[in-house]
């Protein structure tokens, strides 16, 4: 949701398929492919990390790369918080979350079960 809103605020159209890692659909956000590749490497902590870190640094500088590492880290924490505690989507966001779920593929996640109202809205629109 915030990806859509923040992109719109700077008049950039973003295909939400970008969060599924489809490089061809990431346009309008500078260094989007390098950011996604680095995020994937950080998630896996595998032997691609050094090269994706280097490429991201070349694309947006060291401070940008560090910023991306910070965001990836804090969001891993937020994901753990949300899923370990089974919290549901906030009331104000339910309709938007349901609308975005199919664009992002998130309706396939088991954790949708934690937000029954959202699941119901998605079911009504199938």
């Amino acid at each position: 949701m915030l990806l859509s809103l923040s992109s719109a605020a700077v008049e950039v159209e973003t295909d939400l398929n970008s969060i599924k890692g489809h490089a061809s659909s990431i346009e309008g956000i500078p260094a989007a492919k390098e950011l996604v590749d680095f995020t994937d490497s950080v998630h896996r902590l595998d032997d691609t990390l050094t090269s994706t870190r280097t490429r991201l640094t070349e694309a947006i500088g060291t401070e940008g790369m560090v910023d991306a590492a910070i965001i990836s880290s804090v969001f891993r924490s937020l994901n753990i918080t949300a899923d370990s505690s089974g919290i549901r989507i906030d009331d104000d966001w339910e309709t938007t979350a349901a609308a975005l779920a199919s664009e992002t593929g998130a309706q396939e996640y088991r954790t949708l079960e934690n937000s029954p109202n959202v699941k119901s809205i998605i079911g009504q629109h199938k």
Partner: peptide
């Protein structure tokens, strides 16, 4: 106030959450 723009931040955030399959 950050090195990344807001859309760049939210791209990394959304991709991380997708990899962890966190619907929230």
């Amino acid at each position: 106030h950050r090195s990344l723009s807001r859309p760049q931040v939210e791209l990394v955030a959304a991709r991380t959450s997708a990899l962890n399959e966190c619907f929230y």
